[in-house]
Structures are given as structure tokens and as C-alpha cells.
């Protein structure tokens, strides 16, 4: 049950625990995440979904007094071993947040280029190329190509979220973590992001946290159900939504609690 079938494993989580101060919010999580597949994380509020994905790119430790034990293997290498640079991990494992958060003072172009510039890329032609490609991949290019200089903050919410996805894609990550990427969006904007997520799996491994069960069912290949900091069930999405093995999963997805 704990391993992803049919494809190779991109991330292997082994005995992961996480704390905020003395409060343990993740308990002995082990799961394999399939490469170039979409894995959804669902569970009631406070069960540790955001904490879990933040452990996958070493964002959890950014919080004071937050602590992690266990191993997270990215292509077989533990991202928590001493010689690994967290900044490098965060480039390889990108993140898109719940609320679209473009850099407000920057133009559309600069928002997308920001990551590369931070990495020291100055070559204008290369930047142009990457900006265009990233905006195309995030399905925003056609809507903004004439006005790349306008402020990122002037876009609609759905466009801003796609801008953030373009920004994440620009640094060519291998994995993209999305924490409730559609919760601030209307159904049309949501549908566009969902289509985009489906496209992304051609090239990327995607992990998406969502409160919207239908969304998990629609977009993901695998679904993990978290409850009170534990991984309760992890299966092919259809299996989990059609015939879950655990009573708690069933009660949650059928709306009997949560």
C-alpha cells in the first residue's frame, strides 16, 4: 500500500516526524511518491498536510523551534543529510502557495525571471526564452504576452496563481509542491489550473494539498489521507475514492466527519 506502482519513485519518505516546539504534528510518515505523477494530500484542517509538503523541500525548519527527524530521499539522496544545501533543494522542489503571492512591485516578466536572476543568470536572451516558456507552460502566455511589463499584482487572482506557477517553473524544478493552489479561485480559474496540473505531469512530479475532495479525485493519480499527523491511507486515487480500505478515510471523504 505504501509504494507507488508502475513508475519509478521520485521521493521516498521514511519515518518522518515533525514538531513545532514540543507539539508533534507528523508521526512516522513513510511513503513513496511516484515520478511524473500527481499525488494529492487530503485530510481535515490541522492534520499536518502543509507541514508535510514543507518537509519535502526543507521549508519546515525555517520556522523557529520547528524540528524534523526521519529521511526524505530525493532520487535516493537524503535531503536532510549534512552536506546538502537547502537552497539547492528548494530549487529542485518548487512550491506554489494557497494565496497567489506574486512579488507586488515587480512586472509580470520580472516575477517569472526572479528565480533565475537570483541564481545569477544575466543573459537577456536566455531570460526571455525561459520567461516565455514558463508562461506558456502555465497557460498564461496568451493572456499576458502583450503586457509583460505590467505589474504582476494587476492580474486577476487566477492569472496571479498561474504567474506563481510560471515563477516556480522558471527555475526548472523536478518536483512542484502545491498547497491548496485553487482555494482562492473561482471555478473557471480552478479548471484552468487543474488542466495545467494535468499537463505538468508530463515533465514534473506534482504533489498537491487540497481541501476539495473532488479536485483530488479529478486531478491526482494517487491520494494520501492524513489524519491527526498520521498517514492513514495511500492508494491509487480511484481506489481510495471508490473503495477506501480504512473506516476513517471513508468517513472523511463521505463527509461523515471533518
Amino acid at each position: 500500500m505504501q509504494e507507488a506502482k508502475e513508475t519509478s519513485v521520485k521521493i521516498s519518505v521514511e519515518g518522518l516526524n515533525a514538531w513545532f516546539n514540543t507539539n508533534q504534528v507528523l508521526k512516522d510518515i513513510s511513503m513513496d511518491i511516484a515520478e511524473k505523477r500527481i499525488t494529492a494530500i487530503i485530510g481535515p484542517s490541522g492534520c499536518g498536510k502543509s507541514t508535510f509538503v514543507r518537509c519535502l523541500n526543507r521549508m519546515h525548519e525555517v520556522v523557529p523551534k520547528a524540528r524534523v527527524t526521519g529521511r526524505v530521499l530525493l532520487d535516493g539522496e537524503d535531503i536532510y543529510s549534512a552536506d546538502v544545501d537547502p537552497v539547492d533543494i528548494r530549487r529542485r522542489v518548487g512550491m506554489v502557495f494557497q494565496k497567489p503571492n506574486p512579488f507586488p512591485t515587480m512586472s509580470v516578466y520580472d516575477n517569472v525571471a526572479a528565480g533565475l536572476r537570483l541564481m545569477g543568470v544575466r543573459d537577456r536572451a536566455r531570460l526571455d526564452r525561459v520567461v516565455k516558456k514558463s508562461l506558456e507552460m502555465s497557460a498564461l502566455w496568451d493572456e499576458v504576452k502583450g503586457e509583460l511589463n505590467k505589474s504582476g499584482a494587476s492580474l486577476s487572482g487566477g492569472q496571479q496563481q498561474r504567474l506563481c506557477i510560471a515563477r516556480a517553473l522558471a527555475v526548472e524544478p523536478e518536483v512542484i509542491l502545491m498547497d491548496e493552489p485553487c482555494s482562492a479561485l473561482d471555478p473557471i480559474a480552478t479548471a484552468k489550473i487543474e488542466d495545467l496540473i494535468a499537463e505538468l505531469k508530463k515533465d514534473y512530479t506534482v504533489i498537491i494539498v487540497t481541501h476539495n475532495m473532488q479536485q483530488a479525485a479529478r486531478v491526482s493519480d494517487y491520494t494520501a489521507f492524513f489524519f491527526l499527523g498520521e498517514l492513514i491511507e495511500y492508494e491509487a486515487t480511484r481506489e481510495l475514492f471508490e473503495s477506501p480500505a480504512d473506516k476513517r478515510t471513508e468517513d472523511y471523504i463521505t463527509g461523515r466527519f471533518g
Partner: peptide, 9 residues
């Protein structure tokens, strides 16, 4: 109601 799991079945 968009039923799932046992409700859907």
C-alpha cells in the same frame, strides 16, 4: 451530493 466511496457504491 457528489457521493464517493460507500455512498457512491
Amino acid at each position: 451530493q457528489q457521493p464517493v466511496a460507500r455512498d457512491l457504491r
